[in-house]
Simulated scan of single mutants.
Amino acid sequence: MATGSTLPRRALGRRIRQLRERNNVSQAAAARIVETSPQSYGRLEEGRVTKVTDLGINALANAFKADDEERRLLLDLAQEIRQTQKSDGSLWRATSDVIPKAFNHYLALEEAASRIISWQTMLVPGLLQTREYRRALVWAEYPGMPPEEVERILDFVMKRQEMLVNSDFRFEAILAEAVLRYQAGGPGVSTDQLRRMLELSEMPNVSVRIVPFDAQTPVALITRSPFVICEFPPLPTSKLIEPPVVYIEGFVGELYLERNVEVAQYMDTARRLAQVALPEAASRDRVLTTIKELMK
């Protein structure tokens, strides 16, 4: 039985399904293209264990009219599947990794998720950031980046936030109170960011809760590292539930955890953080208080 991280297989399946649907090709027709059964092809699109060859990937890319960049991404993901076969069920991606260099697993998970729980200790989550707040972060991390590249990143971040209007998606942010206090870009940018957070927190599918400095249980102090939990809807064909993934971002890379025992520990930590976080209304009051202090 194949082992290793499921992330490359899931990502490859989603990309192939998107290309197929874009060209109005049925699964049965796609199965005939790669000379396999509809069941085996269905497993490919759902990211389940199945044999993937570069010859088959190229045949599908031709049939689905993939451009050069799309074809390269499919082949890179297929190569990553083979490289991760012997991993322990987690995936570590150093920032210097170049296979596949044009693909970010977290963004793919975010796009596919039905629910995201984000624990942050210093920064506002990307789905809640204003353009100017994110600009300050980009300039701080990459002071030499060309302005046009900065704007491209900002356009992409703002585009990501469109998923918040999807009523089938739920975003739950649990934030240490320090997130409200750190000023990125100065008081004006920080004030606008907190106002934006308040606005988004009123949406029925968005929850923002603050773990205050004076929380009686020190779980927030123990859980110093931010993390994100992604949960997913049933797979489109088999209706199986796609396993959740924990994402942890570090200074030199990204860690993705998929094993049940590890995911369960982070789910329990998120539950404990939620227990000590202020209710949503009280959290909004805490944000408002911070805004007033910044405006003095």
Rank of each mutant, 00 (worst) to 15 (best):
L128D: 12
M145S: 11
L127S: 09
R152C: 12
E148W: 01
P125M: 06
S190P: 02
P125Q: 05
E151L: 09
R135Y: 06
R134L: 08
G186N: 03
L164Y: 02
T130P: 03
Y133G: 03
A140M: 09
M145D: 09
G186Q: 08
E151T: 08
A176T: 02
L175C: 13
Q120G: 02
E151H: 02
Q193K: 01
R134K: 06
K159E: 15
I153G: 08
V124W: 09
K159M: 08
V189A: 02
E162W: 00
F156M: 13
G144I: 07
E141A: 13
L137Q: 15
R135H: 07
I117E: 11
V179H: 04
G126D: 14
F156Y: 11
M145H: 00
E162R: 09
V138R: 03
T191A: 14
D155M: 01
L123E: 14
V124T: 14
Q161Y: 08
E162F: 01
A176V: 01
V138F: 07
D192A: 15
P187G: 04
K159I: 07
E149N: 10
E141T: 10
R152T: 14
L180R: 06
M145K: 10
E151A: 05
S190D: 00
E149V: 09
S190F: 00
Q120K: 01
R135V: 03
V124M: 14
Y142K: 11
L137K: 05
R181E: 13
T130S: 12
F169S: 13
Y142S: 14
L123T: 13
E148M: 02
L164A: 06
I174G: 11
P147F: 04
Y133R: 07
D155I: 05
D168Y: 04
V138S: 07
V179M: 05
W119F: 12
M145N: 07
R134G: 07
L198T: 09
A140Q: 11
P143H: 06
E132Y: 00
R152V: 07
T121C: 09
M145F: 02
G126R: 08
R170C: 10
Y133V: 05
F171A: 12
F169G: 15
I153Y: 12
T121F: 05
P143N: 08
